[in-house]
Each structure stands twice: as C-alpha cells, then as structure tokens.
Design a protein around this nucleic acid. Structure first.
Lengths: 346, 346
DNA sequence: ACTGGATGTGCAAACGATTGCACGTTCGCG
DNA sequence: CGCGAACGTGCAATCGTTTGCACATCCAGT
C-alpha cells in the first residue's frame, strides 16, 4: 500500500559501499571513523533518495523507541492540556513522541494502560494519575522503567515527583480568609486516596493550628471525586449539618464551582453571604461569575519540569543524582468570590 | 536496564517446540493449524512466563505499528479533548495507540510533525488541523497513508472528512435572530483559509439571501484567528465603522466571548442592547455570563465517527466504498446572550 | 625493509516477530 | 496393502538497523 521508503540498503547500492558504512556515515557519533569523501557521497545519496531512518527497526535493534508514555486521569479536565504542552515543548524537539492515555481514575484501566505502554516499549513514563499507593507503577519503576510522577506522588518509593506547594497555597488562602475576618471556615477536601487531596487537607489542618483557628471537624467534608457534582453534594451536606460557617476553602476549583451553585440554589450569595475559594486556577475559570479566588499552580512549567527530570532519568548513568522531590511555587489569586465577612454574621 | 522480557524463543525453549510453532499457537488466526494439546502447552507456558508480544518486532515484520497519528491545532482549545476521547474510545479497545501532535496552526510545524508521524510508521492519520489547500497531507494520502480529516476538509481531494452541518447551524441561528426581530445582523467571520470559517461565511450569505435579509457588506468582518482577541478586534472595527447593527452572529464561541467583552467595554449590554451568538458550544462555556446562545456540535461523536472511518480505510480492500463526506447534525442552544431587539432600535 | 599500530571498510550477527515452503507423519480410501 | 492427500511442525528468510570484530591497506618508526 504505502509507497516503499528508501532504506540504508538502497543508499548502499547507490553508492557502492556496504550498508554498515552507510549507517555509520549517517550517524554523527560514528561519522568520524569514515573518510570525509565517502561521508559526503553517502549524504548526497541519502538526500537525493530522500532517506528517512526507520524508527521501528532502530527501536528493535537498540531497544529505544524514542517514545514516552503520559498517563493522566482525563484530558477533558482543562488543567491537563497545558501540562501536556509543557511536556511536549521539551520532549518533541529531542525527537520523542508521547502517547497519552486517560485512566478515568479507574485502577483497572490504569493497570491495563500501563501494560499497553510497556508493550509498546516506551523509554519513560510521566504519570499524573497515580494513586497514593500504586503497586503497578512502583513495579514498573522497579523493573527499570524511568518514571516521574506529576501533581501526585506515590509514597514509600523513590520515584521522582513534581508537585505544587500545596502547603503554601492552602496557608496563604487561609491567611487571606482570616484577614477578611472569617473564623468559621469549612474545608471541602478532595479524595483522600489522591495525594493532592490528602496533602491539601493536612495543610489545612496544620495551617489552622499555626494560626490558632479552631476548626470544627464537622466543617470538613470529603469529596470522593474532584468534580462539580461532588462539590455540590458536599456543600449540601455542609448546609444540612446545621453548623455555621462564613467561608468554604475548597481543595480545587471544580469543587468550588459546585459549591457556589448550591449556595446560590439555597439563596446564599457568594461572596456577600459566604466566601468560597478554589485551587488550581484552571483555564477558562475567568469565564465564571463571581470570578473565583483561587491558588494558581504552574501547569505548563510542571510539564516542563517533569519532562526534564524524565530526560535526566532516561539518560542517567545512575550516578546522576536526580532530585526526588520538586516543589513548584504557587500564587494566590484574589478575585471576587471571597470578601469580608458580613457584619451580621461576625 | 529494563529487566528483559520473555520472547517467543523463551517459550519455544520451555516447551521444546520451534519458535514458529509458538508464534502460530499464539495467533488466533493460525492457531487452528496446530494440535490442540500443543496449543494448550504453549499457552500455559506463555502464561507462566508472562509473555507479552513485542510490538516493535511485530511492527518491523508486518509493517503495521497499530499506531495512528492525530493532528490538531492545539490541545488547550477545549473542543479537542472530547474529540480525542471519542477517537480513543473506538481505537484503544482494538489495540491502537494514538500519537497526538499540536500544529499551533503553523504550516511549518504541521509539515514537520507530519514527517515525524510518517517516520514512526503510523498506520493512519486523523487530521483536525488541515488547511483548505494542504499539499502535504494530500501527498501523504497519495502515498497510500490512510487519512481522515475532521472538522475541516481539504478541497479537490478524495480524502474522507467528517464535518458538522455548518449550513444548518448558521441557518437556524439566523432564523432565531430574525424571530427576535433582528434585521441588521453583523457576521464575525472566521479565518477564510480554514474550511470552517469559509463554510460558515458562505452559509451566512446564502441563508440571509434565502430569508431575504439585506446584509450590509460592511457588517461582515473577518477574523484571522479563532480566538477572543480577534473577536475583540473585529468588534471594535464593527463599532468604528459607524454602521448600525443589533446582533452579531459569530463564527465560533471564542470570537463571541471577545465580542461581548468589547461591547461591555463600550457600555453596550448583551443581550439588551446587542445580541451575540456563538458556534461550537465548547466545554466550560456554561461558566460564562451571559450564557451564550450557540450551536452545539457533536464533539465526542465526531471523534468516534472519524476513527470508525479511519478503521475502514485502514482495513479496506480498496473495494470497500468509504463515504467521502460525513455531516454531523448540530443543535441550536438558545440561552441568554440573544434577546428581542430593543424597541427604540427597531 | 620489516614490524606494528592506526585507519577505514566490510562481514555477519543480532533485535523479536511472521510466514512461505518443505518435510515427515498419519490417515482414508480404493 | 499401498498411494496420495491432509495435517502438523520445523526451517530459514525477512523486516531495517546497529555494532563487535576481522581484515585489509597504509604509513611511520626503527
């Protein structure tokens, strides 16, 4: 079907040398061991015949596919596209291609897709969908596959990871809320089987302690997914509990959006009645009203960083000391969804 | 580095048969030519040794990589993730992986990435970023590569394409606006080197003619990109022209968002002063206020359809008659950004 | 002039699978 | 009982590269 491509053999025939000589002449590293005129002749022929190396054959011989796998929960979640572009921006110029797979946060799916990627002989893996304890990925790393995790980390392993400064983000947000006079602050926590959810909850607790704010345990409710529906459900629970609160610090933006919707349904205005904050500053968030106060994380840079570390990992002589942990700075984005606590509720 | 995987040879050694026998026993199509007991023995060994076929070797031998390339302008544009999930939903279960590349609508980049994909020996290509006249992709198709284009089509070629019913969408939107009393309707057209931009403008013209609405040529302004900034610029031009209008029908949602911003800047309210409509109904649009009246296209289904056609193309005996054109239905979404024309402006 | 080390090129074996062909059994049928 | 077809398995080539090794050739040093 495909018009057949020219191979080393074709060039060898055209120039009257052996295919191994052609191979060497075309390889910058080996080129020096070949007479310059021969190299020139071969390069000319390669050019003329429009030679393009067969990556499949290369891969079979060298066991390097120049391909990396990227595992994410779901590409339709808008925080991932910028991350992918970040990854691509460092890997693509070096000749790597990436295969992106969506786990939908399902363990079965994740395991199967991991198999698929390994079957395809990826040289490395960027994993942005690991669970806190994730045997399959730990095993892959054990087997010698280069792995970096992104946004999340797998505990008790030496897999390098790139995360955001969750502590700082939560802490600044809490400070922001207290500065506005809030004391009864609810936390809409993320899934506890994900390190982001867990870290942000822990950060919330410790920051509250440091600032000596009493946290009513009933005001901490845990979502089982990071989405609007769960944000809505948790907020309903919060309201139903009867415990009073003037602000809700949410573990991510989507929970916050769901939260605001339910407040509105119940006749509560954000921010004049209740302040709500998010986390991530996801793309297109600027469309929402009120504009959400949130913590911006560096999505594109996270991709760049993870890819760079993966590169070092793949090329390391094992002597290379790769940083196990990279924490990216975050930034508080004060917008309209948080405001001073209403006088009557103080 | 990688712990080495078990190969056919290992199984052959373990079971005392020849590697070719192992190959056949493991291939459902060839299996019937082997004694059942032998098959059983081989399968058991394969199981025990955790055999996983090497796709690279398979690819080299058979010239099928079970990989498809997906070319899009930019993954951070939210209409693409659902499309990708649609594609994945049909291809992944069949063992295909996809390599996604972003062209940023740059011709150079597109050409280079196309090369990359061909070098990697993709079995087929779904291209959602073609230009109206796109020699490089036409050439690829000519060379025998299976190609389907999505959302756009390349003219004067027999490359199958999947598009939306732009005509119907524009027509219904226009009808909707006229029903609200609008007569002086501006069109914010998309880039004319993209088939969507061109088709929607043509649809606008012909629909207006059919409905006998006079279109002031000065009220048609053309964006050079499909983004908010261009929507803003064009709207400024529109206002500066001094020609009066009560509604702006935009060629896509992002143009509409930019348009509404500029109207607001100029003290004009949408929809009470001027109605604005979009196209695509992109994800997260529901966050915007006013909620944008737009035309919903079937993003996920478009991915499914394109992938299905690609499959037929890749497996066709060439006798198979593949539909050249597939037009997906669209749906008018009436929301808050369009309203009756103000009495004083009638 | 002879030895010895460069230096450049060719040879052939990998990598792990698929597949046309040949070979040796076994079985059915006349 | 014998012949040929059918059946099951093995052999070896092949896909396009890379790469360790052998083998010439040449030149310098003694």
């Amino acid at each position: 079907m495909q018009k057949k491509r020219t191979t080393l053999k074709d060039i060898a025939r055209a120039t009257g040398v052996h295919v191994s000589t052609v191979s060497r002449a075309l390889d910058p590293a080996e080129r020096k061991s070949i007479t310059p005129e021969v190299v020139a002749k071969i390069q000319a022929a390669a050019e003329r015949l429009d030679y393009r190396p067969n990556r499949i054959a290369f891969g079979l011989r060298t066991n390097r596919t120049m391909t990396v796998g990227v595992v994410i929960p779901d590409i339709t979640n808008p925080i991932f596209p910028p991350i992918l572009r970040g990854i691509e921006s460092v890997l693509e110029p070096l000749g790597y291609a990436s295969i992106i797979v969506n786990t939908d946060s399902e363990r079965e799916r994740e395991i199967r897709l991991l198999e698929v990627l390994r079957d395809r002989g990826v040289d490395g893996l960027i994993h942005a969908a690991v669970l806190r304890s994730d045997p399959s990925i730990a095993k892959a790393a054990q087997d010698g596959l280069s792995v970096v995790t992104l946004n999340r980390r797998v505990e008790r392993s030496n897999i390098p990871y790139v995360i955001n400064d969750e502590d700082m983000g939560i802490c600044e947000m809490l400070r922001h809320l207290t500065k506005l006079g809030h004391r009864r602050i609810a936390h809409l926590a993320g899934p506890q089987d994900l390190s982001t959810g867990q870290l942000r909850l822990a950060a919330f607790r410790s920051a509250a302690e440091r600032m000596s704010i009493d946290i009513d345990p009933e005001l901490i409710v845990t979502a089982i997914r990071f989405d609007e529906a769960e944000g809505a459900r948790c907020t309903r629970d919060l309201l139903a509990s009867g415990h009073d609160f003037t602000a809700v610090l949410c573990a991510n933006d989507r929970l916050a959006l769901g939260c605001i919707d339910v407040l509105r349904e119940n006749g509560l205005d954000c921010p004049s009645d209740i302040s709500v904050s998010g986390f991530n500053d996801m793309p297109f968030l600027h469309l929402a009203r009120p504009r959400l106060t949130t913590v911006r994380i560096q999505q594109y840079d996270a991709g760049i960083t993870a890819a760079s570390i993966l590169l070092r990992l793949m090329n390391s002589g094992a002597d290379d000391d790769i940083p196990l942990e990279t924490v990216l700075p975050v930034e508080l984005m004060e917008r309209d969804s948080t405001g001073p606590v209403a006088a009557r509720r103080r």
